[in-house]
Amino acid sequence: MSQMIIANRLIDGLVVFLVSGGQWDTAIAQGALIEEDSEAQRLLEVAKQDQARCLVIDPILIQVRVENGQVRPTEIREVIRAFGPTIRTDLEDTGPAVVISREADRRADGAGHLRRSTKE
C-alpha cells in the first residue's frame, strides 16, 4: 500500500494533494505516491511548512492503492474528499435538480417517478 499527502488549500479550501515537485494539485492523479515511511515523514514535514506558510491547512498522510491505473484512497472519507460527494454524478453545474441517486441510476426510474405517480 502507498501513501499520499492530502490537505485543504487555505485560499479556497479545495482538497489538494502534494505533488512530487513540492506543489499542490487538486487532482489525486497528480499526487506523489509515497512508498517508504521515512519518505512519508519527510514529505509531511515539507507539507507542514506549507501550512506554516499559509498555503494549506491540516496536511495528513493517507493510505492509497492503485486500482486499474487509478489512485484511490483506502478510507471512504478520503475517497469522498478526493472524488466528491457520492450522491450525484454531475457535480459541476447542475446540483440536485437532475440528480439521480445511485439507486435511481440502477433502476432508471428515478427522475420521472414523481410525475408518473402523481398523474395516476
Binding site: 471512504i76 472519507r77 469522498i80 460527494p85 457520492t86 450522491i87 441517486s101 445511485r102 439507486e103 435511481a104 433502476r107 428515478g110 417517478h113 414523481l114 405517480s117 402523481t118
Partner: peptide
Amino acid sequence: GLDYCALANARAIPIAQDISHAFSDL
C-alpha cells in the same frame, strides 16, 4: 453526512435517497 461533513462517520444522504425510493408509492 459523510458526503460533505468533516465530522461525519457515515453517509446519510444515500440512505435517505434509498428509503424515499423504496417508499415512493403515494
